[in-house]
């Protein structure tokens, strides 16, 4: 059984764009390192949404049925990279917190010119 598409595809694009912008704002303006990480995950997830929506609509319009599935497999690889990034990044934050007792990115300025 498949679900009919009743929303214009542009709405998916705009939703993914809005999620990406919200994530970018959080990543660029917050001071808490963990929140910056959460925002980056939000951006990765919005790109996944865009890939799935776009691959499906291109597959439908060109008649090339495997396009949508190729997009879904690309999303699986993005998920693997996101998981690895979260694991390494959070381990980094734990190591930083052990040494500096803070994860405020404004105070982690050891390598600032």
């Amino acid at each position: 059984m498949s679900i009919p598409v009743s929303v214009p595809i542009q709405w998916y694009f705009l939703l993914a764009g809005a999620l990406f912008v919200i994530g970018a704002l959080g990543a660029l303006s917050r001071r808490n390192g963990i929140t910056i990480f959460l925002s980056i995950e939000l951006m990765l997830n919005s790109v996944n949404l865009l890939i799935v929506a776009y691959a499906r609509v291109v597959g439908e319009r060109t008649g090339d049925l495997l396009t949508a599935l190729n997009g879904q497999i690309l999303v699986l690889f993005v998920l693997a990279v996101a998981a690895a990034e979260a694991a390494v990044g959070l381990a980094l934050f734990i190591a930083i917190f052990r040494g500096r007792r803070t994860i405020d990115v404004n105070r982690l300025n050891l390598m600032r010119w």
Binding site: V5, L14, G17, R61, G63, L65
Partner: peptide
């Protein structure tokens, strides 16, 4: 994104998973 146009659908969702 606004104003992006796509042609008519050639494939139905049913055979997207074949």
């Amino acid at each position: 994104f606004v104003g992006v146009g796509f042609g008519p659908a050639l494939a139905t969702p049913e055979n997207m998973v074949s």
